[in-house]
Amino acid sequence: MKPAAFKYVRAATVPEAASLLAEYGDEAKVLAGGQSLIPMMSMRLARPEVLVDIARIPGLNEIEANGVLTIGATTTQSAVIRSDVVSAFAPIIGVALGHVGHVGNRSRGTFGGTVAHADPASEMPAVLLALDAEIIATGPSGQRTIAVEDFFVTTFETALADDEVLTSIRLLAPTGNACWSFNEVARRHGDYALVGVAATAELDGAGKVTKARIALSGVSDTPVRVKEAEESLIGKTLSDGAKVAGEIVSSSIDPPGDFHATKQYRIEVAGAIVTRALNEMADQKGTR
């Protein structure tokens, strides 16, 4: 369980990282916290020839709230959990991050890493989908913004080009009367979810849903939004719409089965936890 030989380069700036990635193409991988990549290399499941370490690039680990929330890619997950700015702006992020591995993992693991790694069973991709986040990528020709809807391509694969670095994640300010919920079932605390849900909604003055986003983890090769279930909530209170939305989720997903949970299990439980999440949501305000 030792990695194959690889070259290690520490980038001092984002442009340097981008140019290294451009130089080595798909033979290079970006290293940040290393909590997923290094175990995969040790098991020789991943054999990158070059590691471009971005963990010490100055300024890449900052959190800013200025109408818009920006979380730098190399901010550790622990730092995000501890951030008052993040918990005021989008409390779902800290709650969901608490399910990512254990303290030791989160002290090294980065926020950008858990997004760019694109494990469909991990928490952050679904949360960002529910938050309608934007992913900022930087390449040799500059910066671009990728809508979260377009970011996750398949398991471990994103819309990032070979020469692009994920540099930050951006959230717009909440509008109106917003609320959120996160719920997942994992075999043990810290394990990847068998199935998980991140949901957000905006309510009108009467408590009726005007907008909703329901994102699931663990049910496909990317995080999945169930738009039909979202639409079913419009014009209803959350508690009136929760049950039907859950049923729609169960009838519209096509999850995989493995030896931890059958396909049937994921279908049933995805619906159950969506209903549960929507019922819990009214009490959890603070984001869109």
């Binding site: 075999r187 931890h260 949970a261 049937q264 299990y265």
Partner: peptide, 11 residues
């Protein structure tokens, strides 16, 4: 017996 087995039993 994990959660998936429990749901099999209930079903």
């Amino acid at each position: 017996i994990g959660p998936s087995d429990v749901m099999d039993l209930i079903r």
